[in-house]
Amino acid sequence: MAVYPDPNGPTEADTAHVLRAALWMLGAVVSFSTMAVAGRAVSFELDTFEIMMYRSLVGFLIVMIVAPAAGTLTQVSLRKPQVQLLRNICHFTGQNLWFYAITLIPLAQVFALEFTSPLWVLVLSPLLLGEKLTRMRIVAALIGFIGILIVARPSPETLNVGTLSAAGAAIGFAGSIIFTKRLTRTETLTCILFWMTLTQTFFGLACAGFDGDIALPSAVSVPWLVLIALGGLTAHFCLTTALSIAPATLITPVDFLRLPLIAVIGLLAYQEPVDVFVILGAALIFGANYLNLWFQTRKKHSSG
């Protein structure tokens, strides 16, 4: 990850790094938004398990084409099978709930609740990674929780399966993030994506075929499924590349552009009204995430 030791501020080269990282982050923003639109397009024909099965199968084929061409297939190993399995169970569960949520509630609300994943990482990391729950992490989590309440506005009228699914997806993604952290200490992106797409193909096949009926996608749905698979892989790649170029504190704000972008898409494509409370709550959630990132970065620099 890039650092900027010059006390006089970032140089032109540093600025170029940040701009390049921001462009990669924009690629992730577009990829996530594309997945949401494509997921809603095929949801009328396929259930979430079938979507995940086809998405993972297409993703695995893409990995098997790109990795040999890039010379990274040899990086695939099975040094930590238990961690890979736990990571993919969390991701599979979270992604299924996410695809289900986007069919039930406005896209902006789904994305706003998805932004709580880093806050769940704060809460779960002491249990799963042995990290210390500091005072700043507690403050960030409380601010984020207030944001969740504003977005979801829990009441008998507003608390429904859609909001609960989106919240559950965020917890699933948090588990995936935590176990990915453990994997990236020894494994490469190719290795993680290989096992993610392969294992989740079998997860999807088992869950979709549980009732003995797996729907085949129509010619109309196939391009959308390819978009979902490409969107998932490119989102992971763009996000990882951006973080390898510049510090998270500098590029994370770009990720917040997902919310206004998906709100505009929801308004134009699905006539979903822009909810001011969703925007306000999401801003609080983002602020809590950014506060924790900023504090952790400052602490590392001061100790270094």
Rank of each mutant, 00 (worst) to 15 (best):
F286L: 12
P156K: 14
C207A: 14
T241M: 05
L280F: 12
A206D: 04
Q200A: 02
F202I: 07
A208D: 05
L257R: 14
P247M: 12
L205K: 10
L216W: 11
A235G: 02
L267G: 04
P217T: 13
W195Q: 05
R258H: 02
G232V: 15
L257M: 08
F203A: 09
P154W: 09
S218G: 15
C207V: 07
G172L: 06
G175E: 14
A174W: 06
C191P: 01
G209C: 00
C238K: 11
P260W: 05
F203Y: 11
F286P: 03
T190M: 05
V274H: 01
I228W: 06
F202S: 03
G162F: 10
A248D: 10
L230P: 03
P154H: 04
G175L: 10
I214V: 07
I285V: 06
F194A: 00
D275M: 00
T199F: 08
P247K: 13
G232F: 15
L216Q: 09
L216E: 02
S244P: 00
R182A: 07
I177K: 15
G204E: 09
A208N: 09
D275T: 01
I192W: 12
D211Y: 11
G287F: 14
S155A: 13
P247A: 08
S244D: 06
V222Q: 10
G172C: 09
I251T: 13
E272S: 08
G209S: 08
L259H: 13
I262A: 00
A248H: 07
A248Q: 10
G232Y: 15
T188F: 02
G172Y: 06
I265R: 04
V278P: 03
F179H: 04
V161Y: 08
I245A: 05
A170D: 14
A167F: 15
L164N: 01
G168N: 11
A219K: 13
F256Q: 10
T180A: 10
Q271T: 05
L216H: 02
L164A: 05
G266A: 13
F173Y: 14
L230S: 09
I279M: 13
K181A: 11
I228T: 02
T180W: 01
L189N: 08
V222E: 00
D213F: 11
S218H: 04
T184R: 14
I228G: 00
P156C: 06
L183D: 01
G172T: 04
P260D: 08
L230E: 00
A174E: 02
V254I: 14
G266S: 08
I178K: 01
A248C: 09
I192D: 05
K181N: 03
V220S: 13
V254T: 11
I262W: 00
L225F: 06
E157M: 11
L250N: 10
S244V: 01
A174F: 05
V226E: 01
F179R: 12
L183V: 03
T201Y: 03
F277W: 13
R185Y: 06
A283G: 13
G266Q: 09
G232K: 14
G231Q: 07
F194D: 03
L243Y: 15
T188W: 01
F194P: 00
V220E: 09
V274Q: 00
P156G: 09
I279T: 00
F203C: 06
V226F: 13
L227M: 14
W195F: 07
